[in-house]
Design a protein around this nucleic acid. Structure first.
Lengths: 217, 217
DNA sequence: TAAAAAAACAGGAAAAACCCTGTATAATCT
DNA sequence: AGATTATACAGGGTTTTTCCTGTTTTTTTA
């Protein structure tokens, strides 16, 4: 085991138990070694800046506190475009997959894959630069013939707050009170958002917000 | 390392990568060794019946396909009450914690705990029979002064189907059509369920269903 | 099989959600 | 400064949801 020539890996995941365990697994792969672990995006940025050694590959979780996988990936492609980022999530949500690929991820895996698959993927990413599982290619193909609504619509602060409050049992009138706005204004937000996202009613909005992790359960 | 006297552990988790990694971690703990892994409850039952050796401890995930953690724990307490079951989840949802403890779990951990904590917990469970983290004791204390609605209300088939459909963009009339029932009957379901769960409106029902994993996002 | 319980269904009414169109005001740009 | 654009807000109507109180029908149980 030539430690010097090993490909180095960083793990970014808030589940310490998972990260620590995965570290052991990866260190048991020939030719790979975990350089460091981080709990979330900010932690990663901090560690990248205080270390003089960059990892070859970053395994990046999506759901994390403080700074999530999307934001982190965006930062990485801007600041360290040479590092290959593989997304490692529990969610097979197609929107997630497409969003991460669009941002420049070199692969997307579910946490239920077999260790051997991960090993193969790591090797392939080092050789070819990417690894697209069937999950990923399917998502890409599907995205071609289904016209999904706007992949990443923008919401301003008020709209975001409205969406959060709309996912509670508050009536729109109560939401308007909380936001110190007229009920009519709030109704305007609702209408704009419904049109932007192609929704029929409030339940659709709640499901949308959940799918896109705009709120936590 | 006396393999014969090691305490044995079974891991039940559908995330193969996590399970395999955790296995390596636990095998590195002194005095513990992973006997086998299962992907979900049914798989566990199968393996318990085909092996002549029972594990001392089972680490049980909650969110799993086929047979989830709640159902699995119920089966275990009925069929193998001597096995100590520790719940290992990503959700700090208080309802989850209480439900699992009520069913007889000897502990409840989040996946973001430190490996050392897990090791300590495993040791303590073997010595004292249980390990209650701060998370768990807090949940228990809170449950004393807040009168949560019915911890585990029962729903019949129609109610369950109604709840699932209510989490979509369908109107109640459309739901009634789908269920081949009168809209008034469906409205009766709604009213009963709202009262049973203390809900104000449909969004509340959607959030309830999500918190209790009655539907998937 | 008669009584009790549960499930299906109704009438009717108030509240909330939904939808369209239009105006005043504030912010931004040329 | 004047034009453009975005934001806040209104009027007013339709649909859906929510809620209350019943009756009829079916199923369960004694």
């Amino acid at each position: 085991m030539n430690t010097l020539n090993d490909n180095t890996i960083a793990i970014v995941d808030d589940h310490l138990l998972f990260a620590s365990s995965l570290e052991k697994l990866i260190n048991s792969f020939q030719g790979f070694r975990v350089l460091f672990k981080a709990q979330h995006g900010l932690d990663l940025i901090d560690k990248l800046q205080n270390l003089n050694d960059l990892p070859d590959i970053i395994l990046l979780d999506i759901n994390m506190p403080v700074m999530n996988g999307f934001e982190t990936l965006k930062w990485l492609t801007e600041n360290h475009p040479t590092i290959r980022v593989l997304s490692l999530s529990m969610d097979d949500n197609e929107m997630y997959i497409l969003k991460m690929l669009k941002e420049g991820a070199k692969g997307y895996f579910l946490k239920d894959i077999h260790p051997k698959t991960l090993e193969k993927a790591l090797l392939e990413v080092m050789e070819r630069g990417f690894y697209y599982s069937e999950l990923v290619t399917n998502a890409m193909v599907n995205s071609l013939h289904s016209d999904l609504p706007d992949l990443d619509p923008e919401f301003n602060k008020n709209e975001l707050q409205f969406i959060k409050l709309a996912c509670s049992e508050l009536t729109y009138k109560e939401i308007a009170d909380k936001m110190k706005l007229s009920p009519k204004t709030v109704d305007g937000y609702r209408q704009d958002i419904f049109k932007k996202l192609g929704l029929r009613n409030r339940v659709g909005l709640v499901m949308y917000a959940l799918k896109n992790k705009m709120i936590n359960i």
